[in-house]
Design a protein around this nucleic acid. Structure first.
Lengths: 178, 178
DNA sequence: GTCTATAATTTGATAGAC
DNA sequence: GTCTATCAAATTATAGAC
């Protein structure tokens, strides 16, 4: 079982990073929202880089786990790509921000090394998942390319939908995959 | 004719925002690179928001002007979509950053209103351009959707290529449009 | 684990000399 | 137009009490 306070810090930091980016969130803002002081946040996560790294790893695990295994989805009659698209779309509507991977990917030029590494892992895991999904669907063609296209399209669509405050950028883009 | 010093400030700020984001660049860093003091940057652009707004407007004009009119490209035997893709690709390779629109789009949660407005204009102009391009190509189907798909795909591909330091994300993604 | 207090640095921005 | 000087605020991070 996970430590509840640390998890609250991670969730709060995740929301802030996804809304405004790594360079915009701070220990004080996270602490204020959690209801403790910034020094207490440092107790759990000594540096900003370590906090963001933990956020990214947690986000990756949660995301991959939330969508489930492509094989299982396919076996139960669902199209795994539709599930993947729905997971992205839900994040736009529910939260007020973009995908953590997309945000950190854009900001890579000002990120600590360990956060960059964790961000790359997020995308590698996503491409892996999508490759399995397209394999399930018996996709004819370059599966690796198709996986990269899928994640690229949805990340871009999410970011533009977010700034335009117009979900049709996402929905119109997602149509390309069906 | 444009003021050379102001243009140098704008270009420097653009490079920094595209590499690390709005929240990571500062008057002092821009000034240092230009070879003046931060107070002198404030003389040209009183606030950070005004500077970023000017950067975004300049970037938009430069980008649209650089790729040319879709009709002209088509008339001279070029596929305007290929030109558009090449313009994006060139920016990844030449500069060490992503598209300004994609960066600011991700960071929208921490941007001054005027910068958000300028960023939206960038995307509207891009979609407009792409709609004209697909019209030239006699594209059958929803032209607005196709334009949104195109810009979403390339923005996402650019951001992921940048963080993965792997241009194949961009090239594989661009294949989807041909 | 959380707090107060504080250090060291950076930030956006302004006043006023030249 | 550019400079020096400065300010008020925010930042990451640490020391030490409780």
């Amino acid at each position: 079982m996970t430590n509840s306070k640390e998890d609250l810090i991670l969730q709060t930091a995740e929301n802030m990073i996804r809304e405004s980016g790594y360079n915009s969130f701070s220990f004080r803002k996270v602490a204020e929202k959690v209801g403790i002081k910034s020094a207490s946040v440092h107790y759990h996560f000594p540096t900003k880089g370590e906090l963001a790294e933990a956020v990214t790893k947690r986000y990756t695990e949660n995301f991959i786990q939330a969508i489930g295994q492509p094989q299982d989805l396919h076996a139960s009659g669902k199209n795994p790509i539709d599930v993947y698209i729905a997971a992205f779309r839900g994040a736009i509507v529910a939260d007020n921000g973009v995908c953590l991977g997309g945000m950190l990917g854009a900001e890579v030029g000002s990120l600590p090394d360990d956060v960059i590494k964790a961000t790359r892992t997020f995308f590698l895991r996503n491409v892996e998942w999508l490759e399995e999904a397209y394999q399930c669907l018996n996709y004819k063609g370059d599966i690796n390319a198709k996986a990269k296209q899928t994640v690229s399209l949805l990340e871009g669509a999410m970011i533009i939908s977010n700034v335009m405050k117009d979900i049709s950028y996402f929905d119109s883009s997602a149509e390309l995959l069906t």
